[in-house]
């Protein structure tokens, strides 16, 4: 074996990982082809697909621009309201959880149990919470707010903890030399740092919650989801088109706004 051949076999090890992953995935994919049920495709499917496309291209404009309680605009505003209030409630609830799961604040076992609880809260799909809250508060947007608040806690608490652990505490040294008390150090040294980060996290979560809120209507938790499913079940494709167009535009606008605001908050 000459030097060139040696070099040929001395490939970096990262590639072998890529091959292993690819092989495993390919195997799983082939297996999954046998599990997925391809027989359910019906002839009428293409007709429906054509109708949906037609509906999106020719939306019901009156319905789209209707500001009464039955119109798309009102429903979108309601969806925003659910996401907004849910995010605020969730953020308030997340703060105690964040402190309870920060291992430099509470004893290790408490932090561990809180983290486990948060992981479990995050794993349960939002729709399940939605269905549970429908039992508690009945159908309507209020249920949506409660659901959004609960599903936000897990992620918000985790990001809050990261922010708390990343705090720049060098300012404390200076504030000590100025003669500040502990309360003053927290109020003027920590709070200004945290406000920007917490706001940015909150806006990010609001963006996600808007998507969640738009589907929660499917279980009767208010917002635009319920009219969407009604319109589809009734094959009113123009209405479906209006709702989808309104939803997509709203989510895109909020996403652009959220990216802009977060950039501004974090980078100044």
């Amino acid at each position: 074996m000459n030097a060139i051949e040696k070099q040929l076999y001395a490939k970096p090890s990262k590639n072998s990982y890529i091959y292993v992953i690819s092989a495993v995935l390919l195997g799983l994919m082939i297996w999954s082809l046998f599990v997925i049920d391809f027989g359910s495709m019906e002839e009428s499917g293409w007709a429906i697909a054509k109708n949906i496309l037609l509906g999106i291209v020719t939306p019901d404009l009156d319905f789209l621009l209707d500001f009464t309680t039955q119109g798309v605009m009102y429903l979108l505003v309601e969806t925003i309201a659910i996401a907004f209030l849910g995010t605020i409630l969730g953020a308030m609830l997340a703060i105690p959880f964040a402190f309870l799961s920060a291992s430099n604040v509470v004893p290790k076992p408490v932090a561990f149990i809180t983290r486990l609880l948060l992981i479990f809260i995050r794993t349960v799909p939002s729709l399940v919470y939605g269905l549970m809250f429908v039992r508690v508060a009945g159908q309507g947007p209020f249920t949506g707010v409660l659901t959004i608040a609960l599903i936000s806690i897990g992620m918000l608490a985790k990001l809050f903890v990261d922010a708390i652990e990343d705090l720049d505490t060098s300012i404390f040294e200076s504030m000590t030399s100025i003669g500040c008390t502990t309360f003053e150090k927290i109020r003027f040294g920590i709070v200004p740092q945290l406000i920007a980060i917490f706001l940015s996290i909150g806006i990010y979560r609001f963006d996600m919650n808007l998507r969640e809120a738009s589907i929660l209507g499917l279980v009767g938790a208010g917002g635009i989801g319920a009219p969407l499913i009604f319109a589809m079940n009734a094959y009113r494709w123009n209405e479906v088109g209006s709702i989808l167009i309104g939803l997509v535009i709203l989510i895109l606008i909020v996403e652009l706004w959220s990216n802009y605001m977060r950039n501004k908050l974090v980078r100044g």
Binding site: D168, S170, I171, F172, E173, S174, M175, S177, I178, G179, C180, T181, E184, R187, F188, G189, P192, Q193, A196, I197, G268
Partner: peptide, 24 residues
Amino acid sequence: MIFQSFNLITRTTVIKNVLVSFVP
């Protein structure tokens, strides 16, 4: 007292950092 690492709150304005000295 001045420190090597400046010890400023970087995410806020200059004047707010200076105002910290009046906090007590």
